[in-house]
Design a protein around this nucleic acid. Structure first.
Lengths: 248, 248
DNA sequence: TGTCTTCCGTGAACGCCGTTAACCGTAAAT
DNA sequence: ATTTACGGTTAACGGCGTTCACGGAAGACA
């Protein structure tokens, strides 16, 4: 772990600049293309091939960094809530996640609505490396540690699901899950599905825009989920917390 | 309403061929491009501009027709269920919807994961014209007619939502909704959100592939929804029906 | 029937795009 | 001091959406 040489530092800075330029393009609504990124950096397109092997690899790189940045945004907002209130932090994080998706729909689309199935292993690994995934799972685990909620046992689930949960392909440090409580992952996964579903629907706009803007879809999704996470008696407090963060 | 002239018939046939060629490309995993579509039809790209004003308009046309075709596929499968069992037909339709999305992920993406917000009015109108939307809403209305389920009153909902439900921007013939029961739409919309969310998540693959394949996500979504549609006592029958259609 | 017009196709061209190849100065490594 | 690796260049290929000028053929109409 020696100090990075000058060349290495320069290279890292170039990567950072690539990501910066790419995100600027996305934010401005322009097309993300190698030529546009290169142009914004003051060099020509072929030069970028010294850093990424293809356009798809650029997309993957940018997607990973965007996910990291979005997670940091959630973490910063969550710090306004005491660390001993992981449920509050989760609610705030979910609200920030939604706001981010609405403010930066192209960034959100790049990360979460790019097919992960058909492409190569790189994107596959992204599935288990997702920073946001680890972040959400950590909060959920903290919640469970503080106030365990019920979850199905592996043998109550469909065999294929039980099998998948034994060596799961999701962004979580599996040793953090207490032994005999793998069924908890099923709750986590379904919660993620609910969050992902609502936000994706809203971003793609397959719904009356006034309803999207109101946030009612999101609120009602959360209202359904709080009891399942053992938060029935805190529902009122958490819904108020959500309301105060929906605009942001 | 006179008979269509020869020219008109020819033009319609050309449109149909455009859609046919486009869908072939999508199914084969090739890129959907004006040149590729034209080439498959035995003509050059500029010729297509006699039929569509731009690439985006081609996409919209194809998306609309794909939605129609997917709906027909659902309707055909639903015919195996008696007409006096709209709940059964809904379950079968939802299962077929999911199968279609998995078998033709590119078609599904084109229709349901293309941003509708930022583009022009054409796509906006698609929102209320969606064939599949009308189909689902018809089934839900039939279910309610046969066996009414509870729904919130307008004044129990958030004002913005209540406002939106008075003149909704969704694919439904509003006069079919009984007076004083507009709140029903809120149930419909949330049900659609749940279906859309799960299927989109599965198609984009942001989840362990073994869990996607098992269909457990979909089953559990349905299990949560049956009671809300007043089908608690038919849950067992309908879940069995779902299981028998999940593979298809 | 003959003329006029509308429709539907063409080829050429423009400016984008991703990608490859050959080339070269400079900074690091030896 | 020499070699090597790195990071950039220009030129070019094929493909994309799109526009334009052109022409033939089919329908409309006298």
């Amino acid at each position: 772990m020696r100090a990075p040489t000058r060349r290495e530092r320069q290279r890292e800075e170039t990567y950072a600049e690539i990501v910066r330029a790419s995100r600027e393009l996305l934010t401005e609504g322009a097309e993300l293309s190698l030529r546009a990124v290169a142009g914004r950096m003051g060099l020509t397109a072929p030069a970028l091939y010294r850093y990424v092997a293809s356009y798809q690899e650029l997309v993957d790189l940018v997607a990973f960094e965007i996910d990291k940045a979005a997670t940091q945004r959630m973490a910063e907002a969550a710090e306004a809530i005491p660390a001993d209130d992981p449920a509050g932090r989760l609610v705030v994080s979910a609200a920030v996640f939604r706001s981010w998706a609405h403010q930066q729909p192209r960034e959100f689309t790049l990360v979460f609505a790019n097919p992960v199935a058909d492409t190569a292993c790189v994107r596959r690994e992204l599935l288990t490396a997702a920073t946001s995934g680890h972040y959400f799972h950590d909060l959920l685990l903290q919640m469970w540690d503080q106030h365990p909620f019920p979850h199905p046992e592996l043998d109550e689930l469909e065999p294929q699901v039980a099998e998948a949960l034994k060596d799961p392909l999701i962004p979580i440090d599996i040793e953090k899950v207490p032994d005999g409580h793998r069924g908890m992952l099923w709750v986590f996964i379904r919660a993620w599905a609910a969050l992902y579903g609502v936000v994706t629907l809203e971003v793609f706009g397959h719904m009356d825009p006034r309803i999207i803007e109101s946030g009612a879809m999101f609120t009602s999704m959360l209202r359904e989920w709080l009891p399942q996470l053992g938060l029935a008696d805190e529902a009122e407090r958490l819904e108020a917390l959500l309301r105060s963060h929906l605009a942001g």
